[in-house]
Design a protein around this nucleic acid. Structure first.
Lengths: 336, 336
DNA sequence: TTGTATGCGTTATCAC
DNA sequence: GTGATAACGCATACAA
């Protein structure tokens, strides 16, 4: 009933564990006949090597990379993970993923779980309000750590993030180029999260570059799609409502789309940050500043692989460019 | 530079490794003062317990559950994973997820990686054309294995799947109840995958129950949204085109939506299997047979926890009900 | 070509 | 309350 060990296989064949080890690891010479008998015994007993024991003996870390994402169901993070996985797989590394549910406590306990399993590297999409000072000793010990989507807090480390500020700026500039002067911002509380701060800054950058005033009343926020829809309705109900909206994230964009559709205000121009699956079949089709989650994952994986290869140069921040996808909703001129 | 071990901590305090172990595991008596000094040394040295060594010594399996999904970026599987994680977290288990990219080879190597790490249980969303005979010995050895979304092939094991056939039948019956007699099926090759076979069967069930003939020319397939759009256009171009369409999965539904919108044939009724994020803001809003991925994950997790608690009863197949969400596209009467 | 002795970091057992 | 010793499953170093 016990799971067979290398010794069990050895006994079955009538050799020593070391010989079995040699066969399994292609290490050192072994007679052809012995090899075959060992392999037969391995199959017969259903032997599975114990990676934990192996890694411990070799003193090596586990050939796995730990990835922490805030949310599994979010296709953005899922696609990031997919990009990482395909990039590290070629190197024989296994990606193991855990989700923090956007809470610092779970993030920390996940990181601890990965460290306890002696992963070869850590990749982290930080949750809001988390702090990474506790990882300093790991950094010093040479463990590769890369932060994705949002930079580390309290720690100097590699990071790979979207060009949030430049992207938002280009989206708002796009609206301005179509003649809009009153552009609303629908998003999430800017202060909480790095990406939101950056995108909000990009919004202000674009206004400033065009010589337009910043009007705080044109900024409203909501945590999810429903709340964003409410925020949109409030903006439209202003005495001097905006003629265009910029949505700071995909949930905000969904909320805005729903609100505009249900209130029959489809003439209001809209540009969203982050693409949506059905953006092109909406009425009007949604113009977005698209991120490239797969590219973020691949870039982060390449950085980790470099570090694993011994690159000890100083921490680097990588910006992954965004792309403006013109579909219709952002090219409607001001009305009313 | 070396990572500190329990012995390092012990030396720092002037005790034995066993004492440190006692402190860290709340195992056996230890003087209050000793405990405090140990904890201080742990913090000072940044000691992280080595789970590999611990598990090896204890002979226990890793307090982790291995989950194999076909695709990380797919929100359906992501949400399933989220459901599992929240359910197993309460038991102190860590969920580690890997993606097979829908290929049997990667699926097998991922499973091997999990087995080599001695996970406590295995949860698998099988990829197309994979076979699970090789897991028989693990089943016999008592390793809990649960299959999700699609049942195992060549292995008797627990499974948790959507009520695909009944769900598809209800969706098509819905269309029939609005007077449709020629209902097209847009999907993926039915034979390849369990879910597709089942949904196709549900389609045929509904026709038969209503006394409608099965017309093979009304069935067309496409692997992705673009191909499904092409399939939709082919169906609409038939001499006697369908007045309603049933889409066998969410990609097929997206393709059908795009094709209907772009060809100006919005009067054609449409019901999709599997919900879409923006279904309600489409024109017309999309009626769907929705699955409950979170419920699938939770149900599977509960089954695994039961098995871990020693339940040795025979393998059980759990059906998670679907839900018809009426939004408009499926309630349009036949025209032309 | 194969075997023996040893140790990885941890905990079980039993002694003090 | 604490320590000494052995053992988990495997690979390294060296011997045969």
């Amino acid at each position: 009933m016990r799971r067979p060990t290398m010794t069990d296989v050895a006994r079955e064949v009538g050799v020593t564990a070391k010989t079995v080890s040699r066969v399994l690891n292609d290490d050192g010479p072994v007679a052809v006949e012995t090899r075959e008998r060992v392999m037969a015994a391995v199959r017969k007993l259903g032997y599975q090597p114990n990676l934990m024991a192996r890694n411990m003996r070799v003193g090596a870390r586990d050939a796995a990379i730990g990835l922490v994402i805030p949310e599994m169901g979010n296709p953005f993070f899922g696609t990031v993970a997919g990009g990482i996985e395909s990039a590290v797989r070629a190197r024989g590394l296994t990606l193991i993923v855990g989700s923090s549910s956007e809470t610092p406590e779970l993030e920390q306990s996940l990181i601890a779980a990965f460290l306890a399993r002696r992963v070869s590297a850590l990749m982290i999409v930080p949750s809001a309000a988390s702090d990474h000072r506790h990882l300093r000793s790991e950094r010093v010990a040479g463990l590769p750590i890369v932060f994705l989507d949002r930079p580390a807090v309290g720690l100097t480390a590699d990071s790979v993030v979207s060009a949030n500020r430049a992207g938002a700026r280009s989206g708002v500039a796009h609206l301005i180029s179509y003649g809009h002067r009153r552009i609303g911002f629908v998003g999430d509380v800017p202060a909480a999260l790095y990406t939101r701060r950056e995108r909000f800054q990009g919004y202000r950058d674009a206004l400033e570059a065009a010589g337009l005033p910043f009007d705080r009343t044109l900024v409203d926020t909501g945590h999810d799609a429903d709340a964003a829809a409410q925020a949109t309705l409030r903006l439209l109900a202003l005495p001097a409502p905006p003629t265009a909206l910029f949505a700071g994230n995909n949930l905000a964009a969904m909320g805005a789309v729903v609100a505009l559709a249900k209130s029959g205000r489809k003439e209001v121009a809209l540009v969203g940050f982050d693409d949506l699956p059905l953006a092109e079949v909406l009425d009007p089709p949604l113009t977005v500043v698209a991120q490239d989650p797969e590219a973020i994952g691949v870039a982060a994986a390449e950085r980790v692989l470099l570090r694993l290869d011994g690159d000890r140069s100083r921490a680097r921040g990588t910006l992954v460019p965004t792309r403006l996808i013109v579909r219709g909703s952002g090219e409607q001129p001001p009305r009313g």
